[in-house]
Amino acid sequence: MTEKGKMLAGKIYDSSDKELAELRTKAHKLSQQYSSLYEDDERRKAILDELLPDHGEGFFLQGPVYFDYGVFTKFGSGCYANFNLTVLDTCPVTIGDNVFFGPNCTIATPVHPFRWQERNMKKKSDGTVYDDEYGKPITIHSNCWIA
Rank of each mutant, 00 (worst) to 15 (best):
M1T: 05
M1H: 08
M1D: 05
M1V: 03
K4V: 02
M7I: 02
K11V: 02
Y13R: 00
Y13E: 00
D14C: 08
S15E: 12
S15R: 10
S15G: 10
D17F: 15
E19S: 08
E19F: 12
E19W: 11
L20D: 03
L20Y: 12
A21D: 14
E22T: 07
E22P: 00
L23A: 13
K29G: 03
K29P: 00
L30Q: 06
Q32T: 10
Q32F: 15
Q33M: 13
Y34I: 00
Y34D: 02
S36F: 12
L37Q: 04
R44N: 05
R44P: 00
K45W: 15
I47V: 07
L48D: 08
D49S: 06
E50F: 12
L52R: 05
L52Q: 07
D54K: 14
G58L: 13
F60W: 11
F60I: 02
P64M: 12
P64V: 07
V65Y: 15
Y69H: 04
G70Q: 01
G70N: 01
V71W: 14
F72Y: 11
K74E: 12
K74C: 08
K74N: 09
K74D: 06
F75D: 09
F75H: 10
S77I: 01
G78Q: 06
C79Q: 03
Y80W: 06
A81V: 01
N82V: 01
L85A: 02
L85Y: 08
D89M: 05
D89W: 05
D89C: 05
T90A: 14
C91Q: 04
C91W: 08
V93T: 06
V99C: 09
P103D: 05
N104L: 07
C105Q: 08
I107M: 02
I107R: 01
A108T: 01
H112N: 10
W116S: 13
M121V: 09
M121Y: 14
G127Y: 09
T128W: 15
Y130L: 05
D132N: 15
G135I: 09
G135E: 07
K136Y: 14
I140Y: 04
H141T: 14
H141Y: 14
S142Y: 10
N143C: 11
N143Q: 13
I146G: 03
A147K: 10
